[in-house]
Design a protein around this nucleic acid. Structure first.
Lengths: 192, 192
DNA sequence: TACTATACGGAACGCGCGCTCCGGTTAGCC
DNA sequence: GGCTAACCGGAGCGCGCGTTCCGTATAGTA
């Protein structure tokens, strides 16, 4: 949970209890959104954090501001992991490792999946530079894998992103189908 | 829009205006749900149908009853089309034709896609025999295609259903990725 | 300890939406 | 045309949820 402030205005430091509460809210909100999606009421998050609703709104002026803080952080992690994989593994392995990471993440973190699918927040609208960084990192992974011949040459970054969102949906709505085989089908389809 | 009543109680025929209004509501609701999903308010549907909200609720006691009527009808169509394809084409072509049909349908009809994904209605809960008929028809297509060697042998009916739901999600949330290639990847993955 | 800026909690407000209710209207029938 | 049962429209109720407001409590400071 990075603590950057959007602008550079000198913000006087929070009081100790305020800092505690803010952190608690952020953590609880992260867990709850991940488990149940972005639809959970603020009052509920406040309750589980042992805090009044007013306190939540003092730290995050809007519900959207709250989950934006969380989702942005998650996507930043994903971008970092993509870069790490690109640097530390051979092209094919790196690409497919990231592909798996994204789909597992989406299955685990319903809030993130909602955001990726544009439900309740559209990252591309709200944090265009983050969206760009994500696509950049993915492009790197994809192009190396294609150059190495482990991914068919005609798919684009947008295709892969779409496929990953679809795979997340499969895991969430799939019901009784075992994820392993379903994902394997898509991976197989990506091979040249 | 089939007009069966659930039980066999003799229902006295509707007055002419009532029948007109019912049909109008059904048609408008179908279009609106298809275009914008199951989240559209009843009042809005009533307004577009040129009818009061009370009239909608007289014919369909619940919002769920309304879209159930529509969704069930759509799924029945799909089952019928599956059977038709199974009877009129060779195994591989039939299976992939149905696969395409389902994904296009899901991209076109947001209401249907919502229902398939279990948002707002769970067909398996609400119309178990229809769900069974759907799976039966799909099983037939799948097993023939597998016997003919055009689909890999280890995927199950549940896998295929999940894949189709995922493909619908891809088309809906995919954004800028051209559907053709994305779907092609999944189809390619289904081949032996 | 006393004082004040800061933060807290939760009651309350506004709004959207599913659903109900009832005074008025109309189709069907003599 | 007149009568009645069936039907209609839309105002209104209840509820959930995002957001605001304000009287109270407390951290920080001297």
């Amino acid at each position: 949970m990075s603590a950057r402030s959007g602008t550079v205005e000198p913000v006087k430091p929070l009081r100790a209890d305020a800092r505690r509460n803010r952190a608690k809210v952020l953590q609880v909100a992260y867990e709850v959104f991940a488990a149940e999606g972005l639809g959970v009421p603020i009052d509920e998050i406040a309750r589980r954090a042992g805090v009044g609703a007013g306190t939540v709104y003092r730290h995050f002026p809007t519900k959207e501001a709250l989950y934006r803080a969380i989702v942005v952080d998650r996507v930043e992690h994903l971008v970092a992991q993509a870069r790490e994989l690109a640097a530390s593994r051979e092209p094919g392995a790196a690409f497919y490792a990231f592909f798996d990471l994204m789909t597992t993440e989406g299955a685990t973190d319903k809030g993130l999946a909602d955001a990726l699918a544009g439900e309740g927040i559209d990252i591309a609208d709200v944090m265009p530079e983050l969206e760009r960084a994500f696509k950049e990192a993915l492009r790197d992974l994809l192009e190396r894998a294609q150059a190495a011949g482990t991914v068919r040459a005609d798919v684009t970054v947008a295709d892969v992103k779409t496929l990953m969102v679809g795979c997340q949906a499969m895991q969430r709505y799939g019901g009784d189908a075992p994820p392993a085989r379903v994902l394997d089908v898509v991976r197989e389809g990506l091979r040249p």
